[in-house]
Write a protein that binds this DNA or RNA. Structure first.
Lengths: 199, 199
DNA sequence: GCAAGAAGTGAACCACCATTCAGTCCTTGC
DNA sequence: GCAAGGACTGAATGGTGGTTCACTTCTTGC
């Protein structure tokens, strides 16, 4: 036995894997999922197409991970913003501002993550993305109901509906390229009403 | 010139076209968009695959029309239900009940119309579907604001967000096959709060 | 009945792209 | 240096399913 992979190689492999994921993300941000052929991803990552398959069994597996990575980044940013506020009203305002602000920064990527037609196996990953947002929101809503800041309601349903509302309200602006200046404040008012925040 | 198409032939052509659309709808209701190969649609319609292409230039064109037809039917049903009520609160309750009730009657079709991964050209048609709902709702909201039943708000944004909320809240139940018994009343309460209906 | 021309047929075609694999290059331990 | 075995390559492969088209069948006006 003359070969047993060493730390150095493991690190290189891992770096290579990360480069592939990063390349896929960059292409998604530039040309959407539609532009993400395996060959294009490989070229941008500086490897041969075959190499992609040493890291991921199928294209769907690769993009499941790409979606997972990107989604986690988004959800984390929103969670961090919300955590800095104390009232549910302020927390939800932070959620909207962060979510919408980031989406408008990278509209093509946001569109790919939210709504672009993708392989069904990748689409499944999208569900967990939305679920992560819903869980985050549901936690704040449940706390608000418990503290009496919000009226009694099913936090799960409220959170799911709010995620849908947020996503839908962003798809138009993302397609158009910009949001009207009043969109975000209006959306915050809508969501405050929906939560039952007292005015 | 020995041939100029007559009424009888025109009627037959139109009937054939309708049969193709109907067949596509039936397959969507049974197996989703994924089951809709052109060959399968043709077989169900009782024509050869080539015949489909005498009526529609591409598969995407066929399904754009299929989506348009199915969507119109849904929107009409919802509009009709809402039109029978007098207050905005009751109208929106009717919207939710009709939308959700019909979706749960034909979950596979509803899923295909709302969320299943489809060809991008067909996806575009989905946007107009959602837009039609949003316009319907926006009309009622605007009337409610004008009459003082609802507080001041941007009817367009409210309507868009509500469409997103409705769709998102249905995707889970559609995937699961059933909705919990409380889902629809809870959703109506959510939407009433979001509109600012006074309790 | 017949010529002209449209509608209908379905097997063959083909574009696209994910996936593979035989050959080459590297890394490791001795 | 060298043998063993992994990593890398990228041109070739293959499956899928939308699309075509040469041919057949039907309609029409005379």
């Amino acid at each position: 036995m003359a070969y047993r992979s060493t730390e150095r190689v493991k690190a290189r492999l891992s770096a290579s894997r990360q480069r592939i994921i990063a390349a896929a993300l960059e292409i998604m941000a530039g040309h959407g999922y539609a532009g993400c052929s395996v060959a294009a991803v490989a070229e941008r990552a500086g490897v041969a197409t075959g190499t992609v398959y040493r890291h991921f069994p199928t294209k769907a597996d690769l993009f499941a991970e790409v979606f997972r990575t990107a989604s986690q980044r988004e959800v984390d940013a929103v969670a961090r913003a919300a955590a800095q506020r104390t009232t549910v009203a302020a927390q939800m305002a932070a959620v909207v501002e962060t979510f919408a602000g980031r989406a408008l920064q990278s509209p093509r990527l946001a569109y790919a993550l939210l709504a672009e037609p993708v392989d069904p196996a990748v689409d499944a990953e999208r569900l967990t993305f939305r679920r992560a947002y819903a869980d985050l929101i549901a936690g704040h809503v449940a706390a608000g109901v418990a503290s009496g800041e919000l009226p009694a309601q099913d936090p799960e349903l409220t959170a799911t509906a709010l995620v849908g509302a947020l996503a839908e309200a962003m798809v138009g602006p993302l397609a158009a390229g910009v949001a009207g200046p009043g969109t975000i404040p209006d959306l915050i008012r809508f969501i405050h009403r929906a939560l039952g925040v007292s005015p």
